[in-house]
Write a protein that binds this DNA or RNA. Structure first.
Lengths: 107, 107
DNA sequence: GGTTTGCATCGCAAAATTACGATACAGTAG
DNA sequence: CTACTGTATCGTAATTTTGCGATGCAAACC
């Protein structure tokens, strides 16, 4: 993928998070974590029709994107990163209300 | 990509939109459309370091994901689909407040 | 000690994405 | 009619993602 210059740091972070969420298996993991608050890899493997290694990799992607937090208190258990969803929502809000604070539009 | 059964329709739609937004070039397009409200393909080609055919393809992806609306009044011009961002935000809200109405958590 | 359990990582094959130039195609200008 | 302009689409190469089995690795258990 070609690098796009001129992206703000927020846009870059948002793109990474969107990409992580843009996979059905990973979105399912996030939904499951939202319901259960906390769970181990094995719980997710039970729910998903995927091999254990694949689920583990998806968790890694989610962790790297800052969407999921792993290894709480040394235990290999996962939960949602609370800031993550908030960041996405705030980003969407900023985009969804374009020009709300744009001087050119009279703010 | 393996199909994940058991995804709700909303989750499936959200995943498609997230995937579309999870590309720096496309996110840049969305940001640009948010600023300009409306623009033609050529305007976006000028802004992005990509070939015209590539930009056109990205626009197609965004259109298919329901994020962008094209060809207004027969004119080849694009604008954001207003419902799209709202849908993403509502989805995030539902996930981000997990168990807010979960009996187990005392609601 | 050895064994089992739960998870991460490695290595690889298949599939999908990304980007590009070439080309098609409609509308406008000459 | 011809030429040009702006986009979309096609075909293709390079890259990335996805998914799996095999393997590594640490902790718990015998």
């Amino acid at each position: 993928m070609k690098t796009i210059e001129g992206l703000t740091a927020e846009e870059e972070r948002a793109a990474e998070m969107f990409r992580a969420l843009g996979n059905p298996a990973r979105l399912r993991i996030v939904a499951e974590l939202a319901r259960r608050k906390v769970c181990q890899t094995g719980d997710l493997v039970d729910v998903l029709p995927l091999a254990q290694s694949t689920v583990s990799q998806h968790l890694k992607v989610l962790k790297e994107a800052g969407i999921v937090r792993g290894d709480i208190d040394g235990e290999p258990c996962y939960c949602l990163e609370p800031d993550a969803i908030r960041f996405v929502m705030e980003f969407c809000e900023a985009v969804g209300d374009p020009g709300r604070c744009d001087p050119a539009s009279g703010c």
